[in-house]
């Protein structure tokens, strides 16, 4: 009988949406396996584990210490490995964010166990079975994880958080001692705190069709209207119009939003690699033969400079009314 533990992510003491996704996946899995769901919150003193019972946690461990305010890779990994070793766990779930992609292999290596990274689905079928996009999203593996425990990182937005009331009893746990080999000294914030493309549930991306950096204002306005993040093709990142943090695609970020707008983007295979698991893709392009239309759910053929302002306006109307 094995339980599932979700190692959650907070920023500045506030849990991120991906944490609820991880808990939801853990709950579904534990129900099928006949086990409990435990959660582990690591963060600064005062970080709370309250309310996680709503998302299906039977028990919540909280390791709160000001030394853990920023993501400290060695201390987080040691703390997580201690908690996992102290219980009976079949699966450890993290979100495949910047933190999770770093932390998951550390925990797996410390436990000497299997890792399946960036999975889009996880279920129990006589064993733990995951699906993982590989080859830049051009193929998908279905894998059975035979290691006990196995560590799994879950692609953001792949699972929709669901409420499922459980006890959620909170228990304080100690942060692992020992020296940090590497230290996160600071987190530099960008000038504007922008929503990140990899986590946003709506992404509006612009490409070379915008013609100049200044015209990205159109993309920013549409993103603001839909409450989404701004993304970019590599062509405009290489041209220096946008930062690499916004690049979507094979050498940029993989996104799985519920709604993706590709504006003035041709749809090169390397761009498509990053958006394959988006739920709905909308393409706006003046070229009816642009490859983006082959993957788009909805398309408008025409001049983005006419279409995008109108779209922003219509969406604002809906959101306001």
């Amino acid at each position: 009988m094995a339980n599932v533990i979700a190692v959650l992510e907070q920023r500045d003491g506030t849990l991120k949406r991906v944490s609820h996704e991880a808990l939801t996946a853990a709950r579904t899995l534990a129900d099928a396996m006949g086990g409990e769901v435990h959660a582990l919150v690591i963060g600064p003193s005062g970080v709370s584990g309250d309310g996680l019972g709503d998302y299906g946690a039977d028990k919540v461990f909280v390791a709160a210490d000001d030394a853990l305010a920023l993501y400290q890779p060695d201390l987080y990994a040691a703390t997580a490995a201690d908690v996992v070793q102290g219980g009976d766990y079949g699966v450890v779930i993290l979100a495949a964010t910047a933190m999770g992609k770093d932390l998951a292999p550390r925990v797996a290596a410390r436990l000497g166990c299997t890792l399946a990274a960036d999975v889009t689905a996880i279920q129990y079928d006589g064993g733990v079975v995951v699906t993982r996009p590989v080859y830049a999203g051009k193929a998908v593996y279905t894998l059975k994880l035979t290691g006990v425990p196995s560590v799994v990182s879950l692609r953001p937005n792949a699972v929709t958080p669901e409420q499922n009331a459980k006890a959620g009893a909170v228990e304080a746990t100690s942060a692992a001692g020992g020296a940090a080999r590497a230290t996160t000294a600071e987190v530099k914030q960008p000038d504007r705190a922008a929503l990140d493309v990899a986590e946003a549930s709506v992404v509006v991306s612009g490409g070379r069709g915008l013609k100049e950096a200044e015209h990205f204002k159109l993309i920013e306005d549409l993103a603001a209207a839909v409450g989404g993040a701004v993304g970019a093709s590599r062509a405009v990142v290489d041209a220096g119009w946008r930062s690499h943090a916004e690049q979507v695609g094979q050498t940029g970020k993989t996104v799985s939003p519920s709604l993706y707008f590709a504006v003035g983007i041709s749809g090169a295979i390397q761009h498509l690699a990053g958006i394959r698991t988006a739920k709905v893709i909308v393409a706006i392009n003046k070229d009816p033969d642009a490859p983006i239309f082959k993957v788009a759910d909805y398309g408008i053929v025409g001049d983005l400079f006419e279409i995008v302002p109108r779209l922003t306006e219509e969406i604002k109307k809906i959101k306001e009314g």
Partner: peptide, 24 residues
């Protein structure tokens, strides 16, 4: 290692989309 490959598939074809129209 602890990973057994069950299957490798091409990604599910996206449902064929449609062009809603032209221009604004």
């Amino acid at each position: 290692g602890g990973v057994e490959i069950v299957l490798l598939t091409l990604p599910a074809e996206r449902k064929k989309g449609r062009i809603v129209g032209e221009g604004a």
